[in-house]
Design a protein around this nucleic acid. Sequence first.
RNA 1: GGACCUGUGGUGCAGCCUGGAGUGCACGCCGCCCUGUCAAGGCGGAGGUCGCGGGUUCAAAUCCCGUCAGGUCCGCCA
Length: 579
Amino acid sequence: MKHSYEATSLRDRLCGSLDANDVGAIVSVCGWVAKRREHGEHLAFVDLRDHSGLLQVVVEGSVDVRSEYVLRVTGTVSLRPEGTINDKIATGSVELTGCSVEILSAAEAPPFQLDDRSEIDEQIRLRYRYLDIRRSQMQKNLRLRAKVNSAIRAAMDRQGFCEVETPLLWAPTPEGAREFVVPSRLHPGEFYVLPQSPQIAKQLLMVGGFDRYFQIARCLRDEDLRADRQFEFSQLDLEASFVTQDDILDFVSEAVLDAAEVATGERPTTIETMTWQFARDNFGTDKPDLRFGMLIKELSDVFATTEVKAFSAPCVRGIRVPGGAEFSRSRLDALTDRAKELGAKGLAWFRVTEGGLDSPLDRFLNDAEREAIRTLDDSETGDLVLVVADDYALACKVLGTLRTDLGSPPVSAGPHRYCWVTEFPMFEGLDEDGNPVSAHHPFTMPHPDDVDRLESDPLSVRSQAYDLVLNGWELGSGSVRIHRADIQSRIFAILGITEEEAESRFGFLLGAFRYGAPPHAGFAFGIDRLVAIFAGEENIREVIAFPKTQSGSDLMTGAPKSIGDKQLKELRLKPQAKV
RNA sequence: GGACCUGUGGUGCAGCCUGGAGUGCACGCCGCCCUGUCAAGGCGGAGGUCGCGGGUUCAAAUCCCGUCAGGUCCGCCA
């Protein structure tokens, strides 16, 4: 089937699109030389590659082309002679014969082979990213991303959302993530920042009467990089007025499920919902991976009056590791190190054996304690039980992390398990001045049932904030926003933000809210992470055309780089010498 | 800011623990041969600052210290 986008002035078809139905057609194709196989001066085969696939070109006579030469080949689509059909490629039943070959561009030997067989060091790939993305895996990933983007746009459009672009040059609003700073030439000594998200802009759009806004927005955060974090990333950012939390969950679900359908061919039937408290109790984290069990079990009651010093703590909890009794001592030591890295004082391990428990701590346990551990989560002989005793938050963090370290299937293997996590706490902990810290952001609406306790017991107050989680990755979060000045003032007061401070930091937003702010709520989720999971990639760099390294360098362009004195002078900037 | 892993012809690896001549494997590259290959095949060849610096030693790719780059993680990411 010929598609309109295949044909151009230079080519008629894409290499990978030809098959037995095209036999007899005289076509021109363009692409790169993937492989050349010469048989003396009378016959040569060239595998021509474009993003659609490979096509074997038969040249009668010799041909002076090398790998990665760019060719335009005109020839007849022919069935391959019997016995020479190649099942491994989509076009393997045909080949191009009687060809004339035009060299559009010669090429040096590439620094690495562009086939799919070799694992190339990422450093090399990133230095020659323009070659790396010529490889089929990267073509696949980036094109998948484009499909996801377009499915999301279609879903938002269908739901009546209006796409509005917001500024990249924004005002500093010191709060949350560290911002990238842009010096102003016209106002020397003053700065713009690149937005960590369009949060405030989209709330202003609500005030402005765009009751359903969305944008596939670039967000920038100057924080340390990780496998799932780049300086710049893309979010589906949305906000709607005259809605509740449930409306937002519906809007987002629609977009995500559409994207999933386009990406995987299958529309997930459900997105589970659980409260933040439930997630923490059972998974030890606010981003639960539902693909496997190993839930965290409570042991605090059993050890409430324990003689075992290591277990004298407000919270004692454990997980069962199926088959973990086989772990070597060094592996168990590594787990203990990991627990300590996460802040635990130690990690207690118990091999469940035929006779009971194998553990250095076993002899200190009384019968009830031993029985509770031995039967934790229906443990059987051959399992391992890991126990952490600490305060609740740390026990959650340590066991939750060990759970995913030990149980999480590879991204490419597991099913896709989506999950809404709701009723996040309004505040998490206290800052150095003793003020509660916003868990989401200071414009988040408290849970209606908890508003009374805002002042008396702020840390117990739930918010109307929610996260979307996929396979243990936080895809995004959102909240119902505060649109009433009285509640906003109370929140600022609790956070220890004075009126003057609030005015100087968010004045334009608070000002806008004085002119008729509709109740509104919104959400944003990371497209890089979503696509990475769809693509079966553990690392979002694999779905980004030109990513940065962990230290924030671009190995291709060499960024960041110094700028010339003239530019510095113009911006009135004076770099300090490196220490 | 911190922990751990990695760095050896163009590429991917082995060699390092237990020091002894830049040794090996696969791919690629160059030349010649080859009329149905498709990870083509045969013959020949070129290609190295063992990331960089210092130390130990008669001798360092190998051991030690430092440093740079890449990765994973902790901190950080409202």
